[in-house]
């Protein structure tokens, strides 16, 4: 068990068009990448719980050469709506840093 912040050298979240958010988990090296690449903790259910997205639409793509896992999900409300608080979704990653990985 380790927290996301302990095994990633960098985590970022960003809009990918007005309707999607994408997270990049830059693991600190191939060892932790291999260990957590398929971790069930970074599940669609986690993104549904934290970000109110439809778990059926969450996409997860490992990038072996860079030791990066990319996870993307549709925003609960489109970018720039009445209750927008994070236009680029650039702060959304913070909530995931303390998630424990199996």
């Amino acid at each position: 068990m380790a927290k996301v912040r302990e095994v990633c050298r960098h985590v970022r979240s960003k809009n990918a068009g007005p309707f999607w958010v994408t997270f990049d988990f830059f693991f600190d090296g191939p060892e932790n990448y291999r260990k957590y690449r398929d971790s069930p903790s970074l599940s669609p259910a986690l993104f549904a719980r934290l970000y109110g997205t439809d778990p059926a639409l969450v996409k997860r793509i490992p990038v072996d050469d860079l030791s990066i896992v990319k996870i993307s999900y549709p925003r609960a409300t489109p970018q720039g709506g009445m209750e927008e608080r994070d236009m680029h979704s650039g702060q959304q990653y913070v909530r995931i840093l303390d998630v424990e990985l199996d």
Partner: peptide, 16 residues
């Protein structure tokens, strides 16, 4: 190679 290949990830849901 890393700075270039990492750009495929940027603002993009599928880097491939």
């Amino acid at each position: 190679p890393e700075s270039v290949s990492a750009h495929m990830l940027y603002e993009n849901t599928d880097p491939f």
